[in-house]
Amino acid sequence: MMPFAYSKPDSIEQAVQQAGPDARFIAGGTNLLDLMKENVERPARVIDITGLPLREVRTTANGGLQIGALVSNAELAWHLDVEARYPLLSQAILAGASPQLRNMASTGGNLLQRTRCHYFYDAAVPCNKRAPGSGCPARDGLNRQHAILGASEHCVAVHPSDMCVALAALEARVLVHGRQGEREIPFADFHRLPGATPERDNCLAEDELIVAIALPPPPFVACSHYLKLRDRASYAFALVSVAAGLVVADDNSIAGLRVALGGVAHKPWRDVGLERSMLGRPATRESYAAFADALLRDARPLAHNAFKITLAKNAIIRALTQAQAAEEHP
């Protein structure tokens, strides 16, 4: 770990004033500290934001929920409003990490987790995300966990968060504060695909701090399901995960459909246009299979992850079937 300067600002304004290219905000530190120990992150300055007033979960005027960036993952998952109205989010959070990590990890920090690509994590080998221009050994190396959608020749890493997959399905908005003031970023635009600049995971500017996540009123409640598939029953990142939400009309046709995939791309993967095209179709396994095929149509496997295409398809069908069953048998 490199020596670094430490500050603990009292206000959001102070925090963003102190931000800069050589600085990192720290909250729970569950990812940043690991990366610093491995010399993957080498900030000269660490800005501790845990003194900021960002710990509130409150209902908004439109019936949604606003979640402060410092609310811990555990608090959020067990929050009564979240459990009752956004069970998808609760399930997704509890599918990730371990109780100890969830106690420390913050809502804002969860969005900023770095990939678990082996090569990114080992500072002794090339990686375009960690050292731009050094190369991507994963493309022809150990890529079983890597992307099947939206990858580039420069990077095939996937985003590791479970919570973000649910937030994508819930169409959350990310509230950020910078020196120019506040702005809201639709969740779909927050994370980015790697393209030629895989070192950038998201669209935050250097001076911007996540202050809250805003959830619109729940589009579905019981009729949702988070399904995570991984190499062991707990404490493993997703090979594929699915956040599925469904609204079924009285005639058993699809009146609403949202599906976000985790573990398959550099960001939670959704296709809103495709979801819309499913409206009015019968809420059946056949429809879900057709949807899955279409969503995965552009999947491009690497040498060791072709299984993810089959797995994702089956997982989508299963998650939607479970979501539907959850409505019928709440």
Partner: peptide, 24 residues
């Protein structure tokens, strides 16, 4: 898991080298 191009073990930590957890 070894990357034969680099000749190096790559999942060299307990997050990525999987052994059973209680839930298994």
């Amino acid at each position: 898991q070894i990357d034969h191009g680099l000749g190096r073990y790559m999942n060299h930590n307990l997050a990525e080298y999987h052994i059973p957890v209680n839930a298994d």
